[in-house]
């Protein structure tokens, strides 16, 4: 693996007396496709929040593109290309679909896109299939369209690493395929992707590597087929 773009070292997060993350280590190489799985309450979302700056870990460090970003606020990490989407879509409700995409175009990029913000915004909507609904209000979108908007907004921030937090929960099989195809296309453009997901079919199809979190600890990290045969993983999944 070439030099990693993201390195998390010994990330530990506590809520009161409860240890949500216990010394988690993770390295992501450029353009990698990694699946992050684990049972409910295993600390996946907390880990994402620590990586992207929504939470500050008590211990450990996060390096992104050879820079220590542990103390940086979320918006500065987004500007460096460490971008996330949310588990439950969180559109800006009172902005139109295209304005939702314009926000990161205006705020997360170090310089304006060469084609201009409006053009670029339309291109992004085009690539996620929402171009015909550019002026709609988010409340009029369907569930799968909201998921796409969520990814489109992340895409607009020009990510080097995209962390997709359960981008497919509650979608139908064909809709899951649509989102996986979209993620694969983004990855084809050189964006590394961490996919956090419960839908194993999607994870197995998408990931080159799988990381398993259980009770705030990383218990496995490696080739998907091998990881799934790992006895701790079996116990964590079948034993619950």
């Amino acid at each position: 693996m070439s030099r990693p773009i993201l390195e998390a070292r010994g990330v530990t997060k506590q809520f009161g007396g409860f240890t949500a993350l216990d010394g988690v280590e993770l390295a992501i190489g450029p353009g990698e496709r990694v699946g992050l799985i684990g049972p409910n309450g295993s600390g996946k979302s907390t880990f994402v929040n620590c990586l992207t700056g929504a939470l500050t870990p008590e211990k450990g460090a996060i390096h992104f593109l050879n820079e220590d970003v542990t103390a940086l606020p979320a918006w500065q990490r987004a500007r460096r290309g460490l971008v996330r989407s949310f588990q439950i879509p969180r559109p800006f409700k009172k902005l139109s679909v295209i304005e939702n995409v314009q926000v990161p175009l205006r705020f997360a990029l170090s310089e304006p896109p060469p084609t201009g913000i409006d053009r670029r915004a339309m291109d992004i909507l085009d690539s996620i299939g929402l171009d015909a609904k550019a002026n709609w209000a988010p409340k009029d979108l369907s569930q799968v369209e909201l998921r796409k908007l969520e990814l489109g907004r992340a895409l607009a921030a020009n990510p080097r690493l995209l962390i997709a937090d359960e981008a497919m929960a509650g979608l139908s099989d064909s809709e899951v395929d649509e989102i996986v195809a979209l993620l694969e296309r983004l990855n084809g453009e050189g964006i590394a992707v961490i996919l956090i997901e419960h839908i194993m079919r999607a994870v197995m199809r998408f990931s080159q590597r799988i990381v398993v979190l259980v009770a705030g600890r990383k218990i496995a990290d490696g080739d998907p087929a091998e990881v799934m045969r790992h006895e701790d993983v079996e116990r964590a999944y079948l034993g619950q």
């Binding site: 606020p73 902005l95 921030a157």
Partner: peptide, 17 residues
């Protein structure tokens, strides 16, 4: 407006809240 609608999502989009 992004902050008003969703502060966390705004920050994740690079808005210096």
């Amino acid at each position: 407006a992004a902050i008003r609608d969703d502060e966390l999502a705004a920050e994740a989009s690079g808005v210096p809240g």
